[in-house]
Design a protein around this nucleic acid. Structure first.
Length: 216
DNA sequence: ATAATGATTGGC
DNA sequence: CCAATCATTATT
């Protein structure tokens, strides 16, 4: 038997309940292979969206549209949508078929294909941790850096150019923080659900996702 | 057919 | 703080 915490995620891995999967995605490696090469990053910030009763979700109320159709299918596939007329966002579909749940990937720590990411993001080569993080520390930034577009909608994370890998054991709870999701103020009571999860203290968290630093 | 708006980012 | 920019969605 393969070690479930080492290597390409299996189709079965995605069948766990969304509240479990969202924590297990933290620390995993998201990979996008393209003819030009591989780009990849470690997942450090995510948000879950749960089906018909989550007013922040595109699938709120059980709406089935062309855009949200993939959310109603089996878990482990990509839900990619276009927002604000200029950005793509990448989600991992979760939940059993008929349960329109998904997990938005909000920030990555760059791991592979740095040069290609810099070209795609139109960022000049500079060095240091801070400049690396700006490649992928936001949901729109990471799709641009990995070259993810609407063409990726519906791809299987366990069998396609878009992949999720384990290279370490799941993060312990002590290293995971939670809080309200970003930019869902329209969602009334759901706006306050603590359904954003991030790696505590990580330097590549999204700008709005980074807890404000307090002075001592 | 038309109007409103967004699971964001970057610039001022 | 606010403009950019257009697909998606709901409404007429």
């Amino acid at each position: 038997m393969a070690d479930p915490w080492n290597g390409l995620a299996t189709e079965a891995f995605f069948k766990q309940p969304t509240p479990d999967l969202v924590r297990h995605l933290l620390g995993m490696i998201c990979v996008r292979d393209s003819p030009g090469g591989r780009t990849a990053g470690r997942i450090v910030e995510v948000e879950m969206y749960q089906g018909p009763w989550d007013k922040a979700a595109h699938s709120y109320g059980g709406r089935v549209t062309e855009r949200t159709r993939v959310m109603y299918g089996p878990p482990g596939f990509a839900y990619v949508y276009f927002v604000y007329g200029m950005h793509y966002c990448l989600n991992v579909v979760s939940g059993a078929p008929g349960h329109p749940e998904a997990i938005l990937i909000r920030a990555l720590e760059p791991v592979d294909g740095i040069e290609m990411m810099m070209q795609r993001r139109h960022i000049d080569a500079t060095h240091g941790q801070r400049s690396l993080c700006q490649l992928t520390n936001g949901p729109g930034k990471l799709t641009q850096a990995l070259g993810i577009t609407r063409e990726d909608n519906g791809l299987a994370f366990f069998d396609s150019p878009l992949k999720l890998y384990h290279d370490q054991d799941p993060l312990p709870s002590a290293q995971i923080a939670t809080g309200p999701r970003i930019n869902v103020g329209y969602a009334e009571e759901a706006a306050n659900f603590p359904w954003r999860y991030w790696v505590k203290g990580h330097s590549c968290l999204s700008a709005k996702g980074s807890p404000q630093k307090t002075k001592t």
